[in-house]
């Protein structure tokens, strides 16, 4: 496949998934004296096409997976998967951020480890930090919160399951 521009990548996703892509935004920035440009693409997609969308992304080029961020936005939890494609070509790299919302009543997302094995640590992290169940994860142990952080406390959550009660007052 030839190298796509950022508009073409958005088109490429829109063609395949139609209205299941809820929002697509291209962020254009420039830096330095010569004002060379770079692009970040932000997709908001429906949960039903999540795995397909990742597979579709892999057809462009095997992407570099960076990390998964998580936002607790009330009723839902938003997971943002950060990827980049076209690395190695001078100034041509494009960051692709795919966000998907998962309702707190059914906190489940499919694992992408079968496609990108490097996502394992990040998937283990969102399990313990947000309480999301990653279905099909090859290793579901906790990773960063071991030992003295109790189960059922999810540090990235803004609701009553947050870690506020664990903070010790050091200056009493």
């Amino acid at each position: 496949m030839k190298n796509l521009s950022s508009e073409e990548i958005v088109q490429y996703f829109n063609d395949k998934f139609k209205e299941k892509i809820k929002d697509a935004r291209i962020e254009k920035r420039s830096a330095g004296s010569k004002k060379k440009e770079f692009f970040n693409i932000w997709f908001k997609i429906d949960k039903s096409i999540f795995k397909e969308a990742i597979n579709h992304l892999c057809e462009i080029q095997f992407p570099h997976f960076a990390v998964i961020s998580g936002n607790d936005i009330g009723e839902n939890i938003e997971l943002v998967y950060h990827f980049s494609v076209y690395y190695g070509v001078r100034l041509k790299e494009i960051s692709i951020n795919i966000s998907v919302e998962v309702p707190k009543s059914n906190l489940k997302i499919e694992s992408i480890c079968d496609i990108i094995p490097g996502a394992l640590i990040s998937e283990r992290e969102i399990q313990e930090m947000l309480g999301v169940t990653v279905e099909g994860i090859p290793d579901n142990r906790r990773i960063f919160l071991i030992g003295n952080i109790p189960e059922g406390v999810y540090p990235w959550r803004k609701d009553e399951k947050g870690p506020q009660k664990l903070v010790r007052d050091m200056y009493e």
Binding site: S30, A31, G32, S33, K34, K36, E37, F38, H64, S84, Y86, Y87, G88, V89, R90, L91, K92, E93, S95
Partner: peptide, 15 residues
């Protein structure tokens, strides 16, 4: 070949 300095124009690396 993966190096953010080469792949993306940030700071002065683009120049």
């Amino acid at each position: 070949k993966k190096d953010v300095r080469v792949d993306q124009a940030y700071c002065a690396y683009g120049d």
